[in-house]
Design a protein around this nucleic acid. Structure first.
Length: 330
DNA sequence: GTCCAGGAGCCAT
DNA sequence: ATGGCTCATGGA
């Protein structure tokens, strides 16, 4: 962080500033050689909510580690404190070994998706921690992305473990554990501006903390089974379950249908006819293929950025789609 | 003031 | 099965 104040903004109640007595202050560096990876677009595409721009790079927290990333020719440079024996944890998170060309080659020849892919070259999917992903998307219901980022930041600052950071960087906080959030009162959570989502987060935290739901074991289950387990949680419906499956459990065919994607699918593939979101999801998983989740992320990013550009007064970047032929389906 | 946001649950037909 | 309403919060 280059423009951060030495101490975080005041919050009530104040929390102790104590950090580990002797934090490992030695910086470790590495570079991941990878092509077709747009780091900025990936980190700001609404799949994760804790990365912040820092100069020419990005700073964030993964698990209990502070991390700095910066795109450079031919790869991604990473800095961390005490990375351990290797960088497998970060390599896995960034999914640098994913062959993006193979993903794109699996897509159907499709005007809407084609335009979205051309507009977001290098957009990737991350492999996130399942609990953080579940909790974050529990908070996402009818919220804008900037608001989700704000709520998550409040939550981490109040209930997350303080983490060592390099000299000159503000203290960071781990994402709160299920046990910690389960121990919170509902009003404690509401203080983080999450409104009616507070009881959902609390109940899910308790389910995970008690072992009733084993997030680690979930990754080994088939998509449909894991999806049903997730939807047993209060506040978790099809959309949030699909986000967790796609962004943290390694199911690239999961296809979250939010208001943006639903709108786009209805317009481009159903000519405005009335179809349920469940029908949209079933269509998309088939039409876009085994990596339909990637297609979803390209469409979401394309529409969202196009909309924001339109709001700024510039023409929306949708001409390639609007002028394309309608694809008749179902 | 009104509308809407990476939804889900409940209740009425 | 399906449609409408409600749940907080904040920005346009």
């Amino acid at each position: 962080m280059t423009n951060a104040s030495p101490s975080p903004p005041l919050l009530s109640p104040p929390r102790p500033r104590t950090v580990a007595a002797s934090p490992p202050t030695r910086l470790a560096h590495t570079v991941f050689a990878v092509r077709d990876y747009d780091l900025a677009r990936t980190l700001t595409s609404g799949q994760t909510f804790r990365w912040r721009r820092a100069g020419a790079g990005w700073e964030g927290v993964l698990g209990t580690r502070w991390v700095r990333l910066q795109e450079q020719p031919g790869g991604i440079a990473a800095t961390a404190l005490d990375p351990g024996s290797d960088w497998a944890w970060l390599r896995d998170y960034l999914q640098v070994d994913t062959d993006l060309a193979r993903v794109l080659a699996s897509f159907p020849d499709d005007p809407a998706l084609g335009a979205a892919v051309r507009a977001a070259h290098g957009l990737r999917l991350l492999r996130q921690d399942p609990w953080e992903c579940l909790a974050s998307f529990l908070l996402s219901a009818t919220k804008r992305i900037v608001q989700i980022e704000h709520i998550v930041a409040l939550l981490c600052r109040r209930f997350g473990q303080p983490l060592p950071t390099p000299a000159g960087c503000p203290t960071e906080f781990a994402f709160p554990t299920p046990a910690r959030l389960g121990a919170c009162g509902e009003s404690d959570l509401r203080d983080c501006k999450m409104g009616f989502r507070a009881p959902h987060l609390r109940a899910s935290a308790l389910a995970v903390a008690s072992g009733q739901l084993d997030m680690a074991a979930l990754a080994a289950l088939p998509l449909a089974v894991a999806r049903d387990r997730l939807m047993d949680l209060p506040g978790v419906g099809p959309k949030i379950a699909d986000c967790v499956l796609l962004f943290s459990l390694g199911h690239p065919q999961a296809f979250p249908v939010d208001v943006w994607v639903a709108r786009a699918l209805r317009q481009f593939y159903f000519a405005g006819r009335t179809v349920t979101t469940d029908q949209l999801r079933a269509f998309a998983c088939h039409h876009f293929g085994p990596f339909s989740g990637y297609a979803q992320q390209y469409l979401f990013d394309y529409l969202r950025r196009g909309s924001r550009r339109a709001q700024d007064g510039a023409p929306a970047i949708r001409s390639a789609v609007d002028s394309g032929p309608e694809v008749s389906c179902v």
